[in-house]
């Protein structure tokens, strides 16, 4: 048994898992506050990464400025998307809502391929050193940065929902829309804001992953990987999303290890989360932390 490789893979899993957790958190945020399942979450990452690339490489901006502009763009993008496409969908059956976000997903995926090309692009080097030595292992600087940023975003979410006024309004809306509205909370603003925040944070995640792996349409796969994570954690639990993301990240890399060392099937790491997903849905459909629906006639 190759412990060094296993340890390296588990560390990778933890880092990738926190990123999954961040994206899953964005997904849950939208689901919790607007009851919309966003199949286009992966495309948010894609758009964020490509827009930042356009600012940095094609307009030659310094990193901090391009990054800032990308954040602004993603925020506006989220608001506009909610207002134009998702607002007419309020009150429609779930199949329509799902299909609209799926439609958005293929639209944006094709659009980014058309505009930016189907090949992988890389950001200009941000860090001086490519990798650092930590506990006897080589770790890429970008990985450490992504881990730190993920933790930072999670802390930010915690603060936002616990202490800020808008965060409280969003929690109130998620709890009961009518009550929230009668207390003077603008549900429209809350809906728009949750899409804006989700797009913004996903965009950041996209940039981070783009720095590590390069920007290409493969980024949108993360949007699919989010489903095992959120189902595992519970569809309406933010803590569950983070836990689920980390577990899926670890699981993927463990599957890679088992596959590479013993089974030699190939490709197991990308399919293992979906087997887990089916099993969870069969035995515990509401996940680890999700609330169980009780239906009445």
């Amino acid at each position: 048994m190759n412990f060094e490789l296993l340890f390296q893979l588990l560390l990778n899993g933890l880092i990738v898992g926190t990123l999954y957790g961040v994206v899953a958190m964005c997904f849950v945020l939208i689901y919790k506050s607007t009851q919309i399942v966003n199949f286009a979450q992966g495309e948010f990452l894609l758009i964020g990464a490509w827009v930042c690339y356009a600012f940095l490489v094609e307009m030659q901006m310094p990193f901090w400025l391009g990054f800032l502009f990308t954040l602004l763009f993603m925020m506006a993008f989220g608001v506009v998307l909610q207002m134009v496409v998702l607002r007419p969908m309020i009150g429609e059956p779930i199949i329509s809502v799902i299909m609209v976000t799926i439609g958005l997903s293929i639209f944006f995926q094709a659009a980014t391929k058309w505009i930016f090309g189907a090949t992988t692009a890389t950001y200009p080097q941000v860090f001086e050193t490519r990798s650092v030595n930590l506990l006897g292992m080589q770790i890429e600087t970008a990985y450490i940065m992504s881990f730190v940023i993920s933790l930072f975003i999670m802390a930010g979410f915690y603060w936002f929902f616990k202490y800020s006024k808008l965060g409280l309004a969003m929690r109130a809306t998620a709890f009961d829309q009518q009550v929230a509205q009668s207390l003077g909370i603008s549900v429209k603003t809350v809906f728009a804001m949750s899409w804006a925040i989700s797009a913004l944070v996903s965009g950041v995640a996209g940039i981070v992953i783009g720095m590590v792996n390069g920007v290409s349409s493969a980024l949108s796969v993360i949007g699919i990987k989010v489903f095992p994570a959120v189902i595992l954690g519970g569809l309406d639990s933010i803590v569950g999303a983070i836990v689920g993301g980390v577990i899926i990240g670890l699981l993927e890399n463990t599957a890679e290890f088992v596959d590479g060392q013993y089974l030699h099937w190939g490709n197991l790491f990308s399919i293992a989360p979906f087997y887990v997903l089916i099993i969870i849905l069969c035995i515990k459909p509401y996940g680890l932390f999700g609330t169980k629906d009780i239906e009445r006639i």
Partner: peptide, 14 residues
């Protein structure tokens, strides 16, 4: 063409 498929679905649903 792919964009058109996505767009057609969205527009029909709306």
């Amino acid at each position: 063409k792919e964009m058109a498929i996505g767009l057609a679905i969205i527009l029909f649903l709306i």
